[in-house]
Simulated scan of single mutants.
Amino acid sequence: MTPPPLPEEDHHCESCGLRYGDLTPSAALRLIRSYPTQYRHRLQHLPADVLRRRPAAGVWSPLEYACHVRDVYAVYDTRIRRTLTEHEPVLEPMHNDERAERDAYDRQPLPAVLSALERNADRFAALASEVSERQWSRSAVRLPGERRTVLWMVRQATHEGLHHLHDIGVGATDRAVLFDVDGVLVDSYPAYRRIWSRWATHRNLDPDLVWSHTHGRRPIDTITVVAPQLDADAEYRLVRDMMAQEGDAFPVYPDAAAVLSLMKGQPWGVVTSGRTPTVLQRLRAGRLPDPPVLVDSSQVRRGKPDPEGYLRAAQLLDVAASDCLVIEDAPTGVEAARTAGMTVIAVRTTHPDDELAGAHHRVDTFSDTIPLIADWLNSTHP
């Protein structure tokens, strides 16, 4: 029986939302390393009949999905090793359904499956982390005309783990993740520095002093603090005009799509000092999904470091503040989230470590949040 065709190199999965072209190797490996814990959380407490029962004809049981993902990492480990050492090797199809029946996926002991999944995922990630820049483009062939690169193999293996987590069903849905936008989802630092420096020079103010009051604050609050003698509303319009002149100089961070792929089926939102039309424009330009909840500067009386924005987002999501995880980059945002009673991960994209000391966790890059977010969503401990 001829197996179905492989996804293309630039595949976009409409079901789980993953875009291969948006998935960097570093984000892919962090996702893969997070999967064993996520599968363990989702499967270990299922009743035996639910764990092993197929919910519908042609749909695998949760245990069978876990067995399949375990085998994906073993198979793709071998595929990559061959592709790195042979010239365009011909790869054997996995024959998923035949393998599931032959190896009796539905009768395998769950602890052994989970342990093997962890070993295989760790081994695969370790191998992929050693691939050099020039090796990512090496390719192999499966069916005639199906030539795929090493980079595609890593992305495909990442997709398999994520997609089947969604097939099994979401984990804990009583916890939410809230994201700041600038410095977290959107790399706006260079453009905003130019805008505020230009405005400060225009008004004979110290650009460095003005800049120091911008992080995590609403623009109108910054203007009120650094230039109380000016008409804040008029100056805000001027700043917005300067911002419009920057055009598309506000790219999303490379790993933003991978982080948000964890959010499918989970409550999440953004809390920003910006304005909704601008925020949505930038997220959509980066092919990121619209947030289910978006609290912007117009929806609060007091901006960060006041907790009002984060508390409003939790209320809109109908989630307790203590069950919210916040991803921030600015000290004012960290303070706002902590005051709201939320757990905070700070990303060192715009501020040094010592200025983010109030956060519960501090990481270097956005993709470093992946295992922390996965653990938060799937754990039941406080």
Rank of each mutant, 00 (worst) to 15 (best):
D122K: 06
R123H: 08
F124Y: 04
F124T: 03
A125Q: 01
A125D: 01
A125V: 04
A126I: 02
A128M: 02
S129R: 04
S129M: 01
S129H: 02
E130P: 01
S132V: 08
E133P: 03
R134A: 15
Q135W: 07
Q135L: 09
Q135S: 12
Q135T: 08
S139N: 12
A140E: 10
A140K: 09
R142A: 14
R142V: 11
L143Q: 15
L143I: 06
P144T: 13
G145P: 11
G145A: 12
E146M: 13
E146T: 13
E146A: 09
R147M: 14
R147D: 10
R148L: 14
R148E: 10
V150C: 14
V150K: 09
W152I: 06
M153F: 09
M153P: 01
A157L: 11
T158R: 13
E160R: 04
E160P: 08
E160I: 10
G161P: 04
H163L: 13
H163R: 13
L165W: 06
H166K: 12
H166C: 13
D167Q: 14
I168P: 07
I168H: 07
G169I: 14
G169S: 14
G169K: 14
G169H: 15
V170M: 08
V170Q: 12
V170F: 08
G171P: 04
A172T: 10
A172Q: 11
T173H: 09
T173Y: 04
D174M: 03
R175Q: 09
R175G: 07
A176I: 05
V177H: 00
L178R: 04
L178I: 11
L178S: 04
F179D: 03
F179H: 05
D180P: 02
D180F: 00
V181Y: 02
V181D: 01
G183C: 11
L185D: 05
L185E: 01
V186H: 01
V186W: 02
V186D: 02
D187N: 15
D187Q: 12
S188F: 02
S188Y: 07
A191W: 00
A191M: 01
A191L: 01
A191R: 00
Y192W: 00
R193K: 03
R194P: 00
I195M: 00
I195W: 00
